[in-house]
């Protein structure tokens, strides 16, 4: 008799928690379709109109995409211009290194790998100043190179792929070698196809990380026209505090592709995170 009561209470708790998780996202999405005045009109007393639009409008979207002083479309393009190369290059370099660490035999492997992993304890916040100085020495301030090149290698990414690759039997690789294929061929035709889920996982994590980047782009880019998405959104909120609808439209536009991408690849993404916890 206590059992159904308990599971009903559990379900209720789950629904309340889901509402907490969703409320800001839902409010953001609906708010982006409302006129500025309408948001305020129903804001102080809670009823359905506090969250749902009474009169739908696309004005906020029109405004953010047509504002030439803050070209929102350009900020999205900028972010893709950085995020796509980082994702592609990081997959290549990290998977090559991970393959060597996981499967190949070479001297000092353990030492080099330990040294490699030790970088995990160095937080980016601590090296922020010297990294900035290094970019400045390279002449990369206000250049996308400052965002792309240092992001190409990820210790976490290599670590993650090593876990996946270590399950591939070495016999399979040596068979390829006996057929006269080079190690690079073996990597391309044996290792990569066997590790597609791992590669997708890392690709999604890397891409989301770039989409999410805030502090580093804020520091190394001053040029308004090169601004990254999150930095742009933050300035939206600082300068146009009165234009709530536009802020929410910008937020919604920048979240939508990510949410859709996530729903498609969620299995891989979640698996990657879980993996980092189990063996880590």
């Amino acid at each position: 008799m206590a059992k159904p009561m308990l599971s009903a209470a559990k379900l209720l708790l789950m629904i309340v928690l889901a509402a907490i998780a969703l409320l800001p996202i839902v409010w953001m999405a609906f708010g982006s379709f409302r006129a500025h005045e309408e948001i305020f009109k129903y804001a102080s007393d809670m009823d359905w109109r506090t969250i749902f639009p009474v009169e739908w409008t696309l004005d906020n979207y029109r405004a953010i995409f047509s504002d030439e002083t803050k070209p929102f479309g350009r900020f999205i393009a900028n972010t893709l211009l950085v995020a796509v190369p980082v994702t592609v290059l990081s997959l290549i370099f990290n998977s090559l290194a991970a393959f060597a660490f996981a499967k190949l035999r070479f001297r000092f492997k353990k030492t080099i790998f330990a040294f490699f992993l030790s970088a995990l304890v160095i937080p980016g916040e601590v090296t922020l100043v010297p990294s900035y100085l290094l970019m400045s020495d390279f002449g990369w301030i206000d250049q996308y190179a400052a965002l792309i090149v240092p992001a190409v290698v990820s210790v976490f990414g290599v670590f993650l792929l090593v876990q996946f690759f270590s399950d591939i039997p070495r016999d399979l690789l040596e068979a390829g070698r006996m057929d006269g294929a080079s190690w690079l061929r073996v990597y391309r035709s044996v290792v990569l196809p066997a590790a597609v889920p791992a590669i997708v996982t890392l690709a999604v994590i890397t891409f989301l990380g770039q989409w999410d980047a805030y502090l580093w782009p804020l520091v190394v880019l001053n040029d308004q026209n090169k601004m990254m998405l999150q930095v742009a959104i933050a300035t939206f909120s600082n300068l146009q505090v009165t234009e709530w609808g536009r802020i929410l439209a910008a937020d919604t536009v920048s979240s939508l592709p990510i949410l859709v991408l996530f729903l498609f690849v969620q299995r891989y993404y979640v698996q990657g995170i879980a993996m980092s916890g189990i063996k880590g």
């Binding site: 789950m14 928690l17 996202i25 953001m28 708010g31 998405l229 909120s237 937020d251 949410l259």
Partner: peptide, 22 residues
Amino acid sequence: FRTVYFLPVVIAVGVASTVFRL
């Protein structure tokens, strides 16, 4: 429910912060 609870994680920091500010 798992998916729903995870959704805030994929909301970017700039987006989440501006929404919460409002």
